[in-house]
Every structure is written in structure tokens, then in C-alpha cells.
Design a protein around this nucleic acid. Structure first.
Lengths: 194, 194
DNA sequence: GCCCAAAAGTGAAACGAGTCAACTAAGTTA
DNA sequence: TAACTTAGTTGACTCGTTTCACTTTTGGGC
């Protein structure tokens, strides 16, 4: 008899996964990314090293456990935008609503510091975003009935996905996001200097 | 007596470095990146593996031996642009003149294929470009007397450095570069569909 | 309740990238 | 020639990651 929609197996699996991710994050924050080995994490979570790799593709992935379905959300933002709203505006909304909320969360501070101070993680985080370029480009192209590899759509996808990296660390991230979308909408203008 | 401006030591060092880089590239092209170990390369160049790492920071760096001073050229393109030319146009010129020439060189084909077919190298090449973001952003800001971390300048720098990745593989790279610069100049417009 | 196939986890061994310390040998300089 | 510097060697070591052969758990059908 299946009590819940999720089997015990699934629950236990998720539990070990979570135990590993928790142990990893704790140790990383305590000692720093480079000072923690996979073996350390496995020991702390009381599993074998092979089990760690059954749940995560690599060491960097341990840090970004909750990173799923960004791609799906992005594509949905374009495909299911409210009628009359332009693609650019839909993306602007989505970035402001979704990403800003995550990035400016107070408890996020030490996590952000961990990522920023570890080149390996910075690179990984950046790739995570830009990896979705192809899918987002296709979604944008679909919105206009254009070819899936249309250059303008690919460029827009990439430029939008660059925004988190550009806005990160600004004192007013919302304003930064708006500024960049204005550039994409109206073209680049020299900064106004005092 | 020092015959040339460069000592024998320096010459021998450079020779070793070149021998390693040559052996590496040859083996990579022959067998594929993943099928060649550092040990293979060291053996082929008749040095020890530690010597390889004295000359190159890592395995990927062996592939991009001749990649220097892109940053210097970029900054010069902005700082020493012809009077009356806008920063955007100067960058457009520079990308068309410098990058396109390199990228479309016929002998470059198999090298490009090596990089494109190896995810590790793709990622590294991309980071190589975008690593110069900060420097280019500062150069652009200087051109307007703006702050070195001005957001609009940082965004432009990044977007320009993304162009190689976006234009690579298009059947007409020059046209692709022009299209993208038009987006940056006038803002993004939906593609025209048949 | 029992059996079986699938799934989760184990443990040890191995591989390749990269580092380190102690050494050798060659090049440079006085 | 003696003294100093530095490229390169050697071998052992760490660490991420994979492979493999093995045991345990568990869910479903009988």
C-alpha cells in the first residue's frame, strides 16, 4: 500500500541525498571548499564515496543542490507570458521576480561568499546559467515563429542569462537588472557622467 | 658573452615549452583530448610530468598556447580609437578585423573542431574571453570618464566579449557580428519571419 | 507471509590531474 | 674556478572520479 504519492524508497533516497548535501554545505562553510574532500563529506554523511557520486555529478554540484528547473521556469516565462506582453518584458519580469528574490535573501550572504571566493564554483555557477542558452533561445524563437537557431534570439537568450552575473554584488540589484534590460530594449548609451 | 638579448637559458626554456605544446597539440589532434594523458605528453616531449606543470597551469592551457595579449589589443582598440569614432563602432571594427581573421583561418579548422568537441575545452575557451571583462569594462568607462565599475560599461564589455561565442559556427560570421552589434547599438528587435 | 527483480548502497582498487620536497645538472656571474 | 641560480628530475602523495564485484533493502505479485 502506497501511503503517500512517494514511496518509502524514494523518501529514503531523497533523505540520503539531503544528508550528503547538508554535510557538504556545512563543511564547505566551516572550512572552505578546497579544504574539504569528497571523502570527508561521505564520512560526515555516513555513506561511502561512491554513494556521493550516485547522487551528484561532481563536487561542485554538491553546492548547488537546489538549482533545478530554472530552465523550465525560463521557458515558461517566455511561452506563457501574458498576452500583449513583449518577450523582453516577460523576461524582465521573470528575472526581477525569481532571481532577485533568491539572490537577495539574507541567509544567502555566506553562501554567496563561498561561491564568490572559490574560482571553481564561480565558473560552475556561471556555466549553470549559460548552459540554458540553447533552450531559452529556442523558446524565444518559437514566440516569433523563427528558426530555432536564429541569431538574434540566441543573442538575446545569452544576454539575458548574463544578467545575474552582471547584477550580482551591486548595491541595488533591482535597479541594475532594469538598467540592463533598458540597454537590451533601446540600445547601449554612454553613461551619464557628473 | 650574450649573443642575443636572450640568454641561452631562456632560449632552452622556451624550446622546452614549445616542445611540450607541440607534442600536446599533435597528440590531442591525433587521438582526442581525453585519450591523451599528461604523462603521454611528457613522454612525447621527453620531459617529466612535473616539468609540464612548470610551464603550463593545467591540461587545458596546453591547447591555448598562443592566446596572449588579447586583452591589451581590446583595450587599445577602445582607448586609441580614431577620433570621432564611437566606442561601439571601435569595438565592432576590432572584432571584425582581429577575431574574424583568426577564427576563419583555413588551417584553424581542425583546431576549432578539437575545441568544439571537447566540453572541457569549450568551457575553458569561453572563460578565456570573458575573463577580460573587468579590464575592458574599465577601458570603456575611462573613455567616458565614468566609474570603473559603471554598470552600463560592465554590461557592454561582457556583451561584446560574448560575441565570439555567439558568432562561432555561423555560416557568415561577419554578418553575425554586424547583426549583434546592431542589437547592442539600437536595441533588440524581434526577428523578421518569412 | 514469501520470493524475486530492481534499486540503493558498500568497499576496495584504480586512474589521471596536480602538488611537493629533495635532489641533479646546467647556465650565469664574479 | 668558485658560488649562485634555476630548469628539470624523481618519486611519493592528495584528491576527484570511475569501475567493479558484492551486499542490503524494498516493493510487488503470488
Amino acid at each position: 500500500m502506497t501511503v503517500s504519492s512517494i514511496s518509502r524508497r524514494e523518501r529514503k533516497k531523497a533523505a540520503t541525498r539531503q544528508a550528503i548535501a547538508d554535510a557538504a554545505l556545512r563543511l564547505f562553510l566551516e572550512r572552505g571548499y578546497d579544504q574539504v574532500s569528497i571523502r570527508d563529506i561521505a564520512d560526515a554523511a555516513d555513506v561511502s564515496t561512491t554513494t556521493v557520486f550516485k547522487h551528484f555529478t561532481g563536487k561542485e554540484a554538491l553546492v548547488f543542490d537546489e538549482d533545478q528547473d530554472r530552465e523550465a521556469q525560463l521557458i515558461a516565462a517566455v511561452a506563457r507570458r501574458t498576452p500583449g506582453q513583449s518577450v523582453l518584458d516577460a523576461l524582465r519580469r521573470h528575472v526581477l521576480d525569481t532571481w532577485i528574490r533568491i539572490e537577495t535573501h539574507p541567509q544567502r550572504a555566506e553562501f554567496t561568499h563561498l561561491v564568490d571566493s572559490t574560482p571553481e564554483l564561480r565558473a560552475y555557477a556561471e556555466r549553470m546559467w549559460t548552459r540554458h542558452t540553447k533552450a531559452l533561445a529556442a523558446a524565444i524563437a518559437d514566440a516569433f515563429g523563427a528558426d530555432h537557431d536564429d541569431l538574434a534570439c540566441a543573442a538575446l537568450a545569452r544576454y539575458v542569462l548574463d544578467i545575474p552575473a552582471l547584477a550580482r554584488g551591486r548595491h541595488d540589484p533591482r535597479a541594475a537588472v532594469e538598467t540592463i534590460f533598458d540597454i537590451l530594449t533601446h540600445g547601449w548609451r554612454p553613461p551619464i557622467t557628473g
